[in-house]
C-alpha cells in the first residue's frame, strides 16, 4: 500500500502533542579525512504555536540539525545515522523515502535560509516561483495559483503585490526577497517553519520588520517556528524556549526567561557575558568577558565534556566523561536541561 495515503493534508490544531519531536538525532559527515559527528544525540520537541530558538556559534551543528530534519543534508557526505524525527501526523522523517519526503516539505514543514538570493531562481519572476510552489502542493489551475500567489505576497505585507508578482529576484531588496521566501514557505500551509538565520544578512531596521512579520504570521496561521540564530538579541525577542548547542551537542535547554536570567551551563554563561550588554556597555571601554580559545574542530573534540578545554569551571570528571543532558540536580528546575557535571553527579 502506498504509505503516502496515510499522510493527512492538515494536522489537528488543538492537539497538545508536539508538532515535531526529535530524539537522539545523530548526523555524520563522511569526509575524506574522517567522519565528523556534526550532530550528536540531539533531542528536543516543538509544541503547536511555539517558537523554539536554536542558538550557538558557527560549527555547533544548529544548521545541520535543521537540514537533517528537512532531509536536505549535503549528499553524499551527510547522513543521519541514528535517532528519530517524529512529525505529528506523518511519522518518522528519518524513515521516509525521498519521494515521501517531498510531500512533507512545504506541506508539514518548510524552511527558509539566510540568503534568500541563493534560494530564489534568478531567471524566473518571483510570482511564478510562488505559484509553482502552490501548484506542487495543491491541484489548482495556473490562474488560480497566480491569484493565490498574489494573496501570499499580500500576506507577507509586500506593497503592490500584483506588480511585485512580475518582479525578478534581483529587482527586490534583501528584505523583500526574504518576504518572498516566507511567502513560498507558507504556500503549503505548513504547521512548522524552520528558519535558519533568516535575518542575519539584513539590516537592523529590516530585521525588525521580518521578525515582526514572522510573529504575526505565526499567530495568524497557528504555526510553530524553529528559529536558528547566533544572535542572542533575536533569541531574547522571539523565543519561548531556547536550545543552546556547542560542538554538535545540546548543552542547555530552557525557557527563554530562565535562560537569560540564570544560564546554567558555563558555555551559555560565557556566551551571554561576551556580548556587550547594556550594563557592560555603560562602563565603556572596560574589558568584556570572553570565552578563551576557540570552538574545537569536530575532528579534534576533547574527551569528556566538549567544552572542557575552554571552561573556566572545569573539574575532575569533565575531561573524562561526557555529561548527560539532564535536569539539573542542584536546583529545582524540572523543565530545564543542562549537560554539565556541575549540575549532575558523575557515576561512581
Amino acid at each position: 500500500m502506498n504509505a503516502l495515503a496515510t499522510i493527512p493534508d492538515r494536522i489537528d490544531m488543538a492537539d497538545p502533542i508536539p508538532v515535531l519531536s526529535v530524539s537522539g538525532l545523530k548526523t555524520r559527515l563522511f569526509l575524506k579525512d574522517g567522519v565528523l559527528p556534526a550532530v550528536d544525540d540531539v533531542s528536543f520537541s516543538v509544541m503547536p504555536g511555539e517558537t523554539l530558538c536554536i542558538v550557538g556559534e558557527s560549527g555547533c551543528g544548529k544548521s545541520m540539525t535543521a537540514l537533517s530534519i528537512m532531509r536536505l543534508l549535503p549528499r553524499p557526505v551527510g547522513r543521519i545515522t541514528g535517532g528519530s524525527i517524529m512529525v505529528d501526523g506523518v511519522g518518522d522523517l528519518a524513515e521516509l523515502s525521498e519521494r515521501q519526503m517531498r510531500r512533507v516539505r512545504g506541506n508539514h514543514i518548510s524552511m527558509i535560509f539566510q540568503e534568500p538570493m541563493t534560494s530564489l531562481n534568478p531567471v524566473f519572476r518571483v510570482g511564478y516561483q510562488i505559484s509553482e510552489a502552490i501548484r506542487v502542493h495543491h491541484r489548482v489551475s495556473a490562474s488560480e495559483a497566480r491569484d493565490r500567489a498574489i494573496d501570499m505576497l499580500e500576506q507577507v505585507r509586500i506593497p503592490l503585490p500584483a506588480e511585485r508578482y512580475r518582479s525578478f529576484p534581483h529587482q527586490l531588496s534583501g528584505g523583500m526577497r526574504q518576504r518572498v521566501m516566507i511567502a513560498m514557505a507558507l504556500a503549503g500551509r505548513p504547521k512548522l517553519m524552520l528558519a535558519d538565520e533568516p535575518t542575519t544578512a539584513l539590516d537592523v531596521t529590516i530585521q525588525a520588520q521580518i521578525l515582526k512579520l514572522m510573529n504575526e504570521l505565526k499567530r495568524e496561521i497557528g504555526m510553530s517556528l524553529v528559529l536558528i540564530t547566533h544572535d542572542l538579541g533575536v533569541v531574547a525577542k522571539m523565543a519561548q524556549r531556547v536550545l543552546v548547542m556547542y560542538a554538535g551537542v545540546v548543552v542547555e535547554e530552557a525557557d527563554a526567561n530562565s535562560l537569560f536570567a540564570r544560564p546554567l551551563h558555563p558555555y551559555t554563561q560565557g556566551l551571554l557575558r561576551s556580548i556587550p550588554r547594556p550594563a557592560v556597555r555603560r562602563e565603556r571601554k572596560g574589558e568584556i568577558d570572553t570565552i578563551e580559545g576557540t570552538v574545537p574542530a569536530l575532528t579534534a573534540l576533547p574527551t569528556g565534556c566538549r567544552f572542557s578545554d575552554r571552561c573556566p569551571m572545569v573539574h575532575e570528571p569533565c575531561r573524562k566523561l561526557e555529561p548527560p543532558l539532564a535536569s539539573p540536580d542542584d536546583i529545582a528546575a524540572p523543565h530545564r536541561k543542562v549537560r554539565c557535571w556541575l549540575h549532575a553527579s558523575p557515576p561512581q
Binding site: P159, S173, G175, M176, V204, T205, I206, Q207, A208, Q209, L211, K212, D231, L232, G233, V234, V235, A236, K237, A239, A256, N257, F260, A261, L272, I275, R277, P278
Partner: peptide, 22 residues
C-alpha cells in the same frame, strides 16, 4: 535604529519603531 536593535534580554521592554520600507 536604536529601538530596532534587539537587546539580549527577554524582559527588556522596548517600544519599537518599525520603519516602513527600505
Amino acid at each position: 535604529l536604536l529601538s530596532a536593535h534587539p537587546e539580549p534580554d527577554p524582559l527588556a521592554v522596548s517600544r519599537e519603531i518599525i520603519l516602513e520600507g527600505g
